[in-house]
Structure formats: structure tokens, C-alpha cells
């Protein structure tokens, strides 16, 4: 009886933690929603406002890399569900590498922006907004990679499977969210190009 009550408590606390993550994603999304609406209000403010530039092509490559990383993350999570630790670590490792690649590509994208004369310090703040979006998303990616590394190094055969699987589940939700968030930002900027 006591064992069962413990198990139930434990499962409830897992459920609550997962729910908390979803709430956090809403909070995080609100941040970007606020900037989006700020961008719209600002860009509608005059003829000389708005992006007035083409987005760097590097964004296409970074988008591909984060999409691929999401697929790999999914495979890693599927492996964790059947308890195949080796496979999970393999896919997780590839996800982390792709995440790193994305991080680097974003960096080169804003270098490209700067070469094209689209600076952060700008009297057309619509263009400054591109940097704000990318930087804020990069900060999330940075956190996401730490989460993935944590899941990578804590996955070993010695640890309880359910903990590993739960950790993987949360990491997967978060990573997919970052993917979707980037696509949202990219499409939003493309539509305003």
C-alpha cells in the first residue's frame, strides 16, 4: 500500500513537472508575441519603417539544420522509450551537433546582415528587431543545448529507466518548441520582408 501511494505521488509529481514545462513554453511564447506585436505597431508607424531588406539566405540553412535536429531528437526519444540507451545517445549526440550548427549559422547570418548594412543600431528599429528576435531565440537555444547535454550525460545503463525517459520527454518537448519558435520567427519576418 505504502509503495503504491509512493508511486502515485511520484507519478503525480512527474505529471505536474511536465505540465509546468508547458506553462513555461506559454510564458516564453508570450515574450516573442510581445515583440511581434511591437514590431507590427512600430512598422506601421511610417513609410520609412519596416524591414526594407531581404533576409540573409543563411537563415534557410539554419532552418534546415534545426528541422533535422528536431527529427533526430524525435528518434532519440523513440529510442529512450524502448530503453535503447546506445541508440538514444547516438541520436541525441547528432541533435546536439545540429543544434550547435544552428547556433553557428545564426551567428553568420547576422554577420551577413551587418555586411549588408543592416545594423542593430539603426534609425529604422524594424531592422533592429531582427537582431532582438534572433538573439532572444539564441539565448533559448543555448539553454536548450544545456538541457540536451544534461540528458546526454545522465543517460547510462545504471540509472533508472523511467527517470531517463522522463528527462528525455521534457528535453524533446523543449527542443521541438525551440524549432517551432524559430519557424514562427522566420515566417513572421518573411511575411514582413
Amino acid at each position: 500500500m505504502v509503495q503504491r501511494a509512493d508511486n502515485n505521488n511520484y507519478l503525480t509529481s512527474l505529471k505536474a513537472k511536465k505540465f509546468s514545462l508547458y506553462v513555461f513554453l506559454v510564458v516564453s511564447f508570450m515574450l516573442f508575441a510581445a515583440w511581434s506585436s511591437g514590431f507590427i505597431v512600430y512598422s506601421a508607424g511610417g513609410e520609412d519603417k519596416g524591414l526594407k531588406t531581404l533576409l540573409p539566405t543563411t537563415f534557410i540553412y539554419s532552418t534546415v539544420s534545426i528541422l533535422l535536429s528536431s527529427v533526430c531528437m524525435h528518434l532519440a526519444y523513440a529510442a529512450s522509450k524502448v530503453g535503447n540507451i546506445a541508440k538514444q545517445r547516438l541520436w541525441l549526440g547528432i541533435t546536439i551537433l545540429l543544434g550547435g550548427l544552428f547556433f553557428f549559422l545564426q551567428y553568420s547570418a547576422w554577420m551577413e546582415l551587418a555586411r549588408n548594412g543592416v545594423m542593430f543600431i539603426n534609425n529604422n528599429a524594424s531592422q533592429s528587431f531582427i537582431y532582438v528576435f534572433v538573439w532572444a531565440h539564441q539565448a533559448h537555444i543555448f539553454a536548450g543545448i544545456i538541457v540536451l547535454l544534461n540528458a546526454f550525460f545522465k543517460a547510462s545503463n545504471g540509472n533508472p529507466l523511467i527517470k531517463n525517459r522522463f528527462r528525455m520527454e521534457l528535453a524533446t518537448i523543449f527542443w521541438h518548441f525551440l524549432d517551432i519558435l524559430w519557424i514562427y520567427i522566420y515566417v513572421f519576418l518573411l511575411l514582413n520582408q
Binding site: S28, L31, Y42, N122, N123, S128
Partner: peptide
């Protein structure tokens, strides 16, 4: 509250980096 963060971040950029939000 996240919306206040977004406002505050832009204000910090204006104060410290020279942007014109």
C-alpha cells in the same frame, strides 16, 4: 509579465547600446 520583459529589454538596448526603439 513576459511582455514587460520584452519592453524592458528594448529599453535596455536603447539606454546602453544606442538603438532607437
Amino acid at each position: 509579465f513576459p511582455v514587460l520583459v520584452s519592453a524592458v529589454v528594448l529599453l535596455i538596448f536603447d539606454r546602453s547600446m544606442g538603438t532607437s526603439f
